[in-house]
């Protein structure tokens, strides 16, 4: 028999674990639904407890009922906090992905293939995001693009490392095709090495096509 608060506790544990992970674990649809249901049930309990009093409930006269009401009241709020914390942790992660320029489709592919070589048992579960989270990710991406667009020359999602050298050595990890630089076109084929302007290839490094050397 699960106790009050067990569900919320589980959500918080999931959230805590998510913070330390590089990827986003699957959305706990059942848990969220159950915690929400608990809140609704508690609310109904409160309503039925208060009903016979017709709005004239005196806590000092009936301390047992008052105590039940208080516990119910606090449990509902606790569940709400746990749910908010769980969702906020996940949206924070999603926002981080958006800033890093990760594509949501790529994310789904990554999940299907397993993150560290281990195949995910349920292949039907393509995405670890809830449909609402997918919406959120898309909308946040639009918002970010709009904000970024007002600073065209800066590239807000660029590296936060202070720049040292204008030119860097890079090795190509995955074929990335041809890129245009002000010194002409470079064909990025796997395992080749180039000396290029950092600003030209920052994107490709972030996306894992190139590796910075030295």
């Amino acid at each position: 028999m699960p106790m009050y608060g067990d569900l919320g506790n589980k959500l918080v544990q999931h959230a805590k674990r998510t913070q330390g992970l590089a990827h986003l674990p699957p959305y706990q649809t059942e848990l969220v639904r159950a915690a929400t249901r608990e809140v609704r049930d508690l609310d109904k309990d409160v309503a039925s407890l208060l009903e016979p009093f017709q709005g004239s409930f005196d806590p000092t006269a009936d301390q047992a009922t008052a105590c039940t009401l208080l516990v119910n009241h606090l449990s509902m709020r606790r569940n709400k906090r746990c749910l908010l914390a769980y969702h906020r942790t996940r949206t924070d992660k999603l926002e981080e992905l958006a800033w890093n320029g990760t594509d949501i489709l790529e994310l789904a592919g990554q999940q299907a293939g397993g993150t560290n070589g281990a195949p995910i048992a349920d292949a039907g579960e393509a995405s670890s995001l809830s449909p609402q989270e997918e919406d959120y990710f898309r909308q946040y991406g639009d918002l970010l693009a709009a904000y970024k667009g007002q600073w065209t020359d800066i590239d807000l999602t660029g590296s936060l490392e202070p720049p040292r050298d204008l030119f860097i050595d890079v090795r190509v990890l995955k074929d990335a095709g041809e890129i245009q630089t002000e010194y002409g076109a470079i064909n990025l084929t796997k395992n080749s090495q180039f000396y290029v302007r950092q600003g030209d290839v920052e994107r490709l490094i972030a996306q894992g096509y190139l590796q910075k050397l030295g």
């Binding site: 969220v32 915690a35 929400t36 809140v39 609704r40 609310d43 509902m76 709020r77 709400k80 749910l83 908010l84 969702h87 906020r88 949206t91 809830s130 609402q132 989270e133 919406d135 959120y136 909308q139 946040y140 918002l143």
Partner: peptide, 22 residues
């Protein structure tokens, strides 16, 4: 806009089925 998106996300994920007072 960010706050609106977040609030919306909470609403559609779970908050909408909460009692109005909460």
């Amino acid at each position: 806009r960010h706050q609106a998106l977040l609030h919306n996300h909470y609403l559609s994920s779970f908050l909408a089925s909460f009692p109005p007072a909460l």
